[in-house]
Amino acid sequence: MLDDGDEAPEVTAPMATPEAAASTERGSYTGGDVSEFSLSDALDDGPVVLAFYPGVYSRTCTQELCELRDWKADLADLDAPLYGVSVDSPWSLLAFMDEYDLQYPLVSGFNNSIIADFGVRREESIMRGIANRAVFVVAPDGVVSYTWKATEPLTFPDTDEVEAAVAAAAEVE
């Protein structure tokens, strides 16, 4: 897993956006509803928060993503985008966003290396290949300035710590 002070990898991946989820009827998604996420492009506007999670529609991940949805208003004051990242396909991410009214993008680790590149890919068990629950704050210079990894089920990052890390990373600009 990447650690504080490590250079974040340049990654691109498919991304589901709130706008696409709202503008297309669930079950009617096409490739045209999928955007592209580029970490370097996202960093052009300041620090970025990446919240990795195993998968949508699981009990714990649904709870976490909804808590992040509710917390995002606080983060908006800090001017840092939040992106959820899992191995789910972009179409399942769009359906989840629509169902739970998420107002932040979800990045698809399906068929790309973003989860492995950040060192959070589960390598053992029947669930091999999914992301372990982790949060990274990446400063505008591309350096990881905060990391958190779940050590127990049903544990989530301390949002006050994430907010403080975002504020500190914004000073790097």
Rank of each mutant, 00 (worst) to 15 (best):
L50F: 01
D88C: 08
Y57S: 12
D101W: 07
A73F: 09
S86M: 03
A76F: 03
V137M: 08
F96C: 03
S86F: 07
L106I: 06
R59Y: 10
E64W: 02
E99I: 13
F110H: 13
R59H: 14
G84A: 10
S125K: 09
Y53F: 12
C66S: 05
V49A: 08
I130T: 14
A73C: 00
S40V: 06
A51D: 13
S113G: 09
A76W: 05
E123G: 13
A134G: 01
Y104F: 15
G129H: 05
A80Q: 02
L68M: 07
S108L: 11
S113E: 12
V107N: 04
L65K: 07
S35V: 03
L50R: 02
Q63I: 15
S92W: 12
F52V: 12
Y57H: 15
V48S: 03
A51S: 14
S38Y: 02
S92F: 15
I130R: 04
S38I: 13
A139L: 10
D98V: 08
A116C: 09
K72Q: 13
Y100F: 14
N132M: 11
G55N: 02
A95H: 07
G109A: 04
F37S: 01
L94R: 05
R133Q: 09
L68G: 01
V56Y: 04
G46M: 10
V135T: 13
A116E: 08
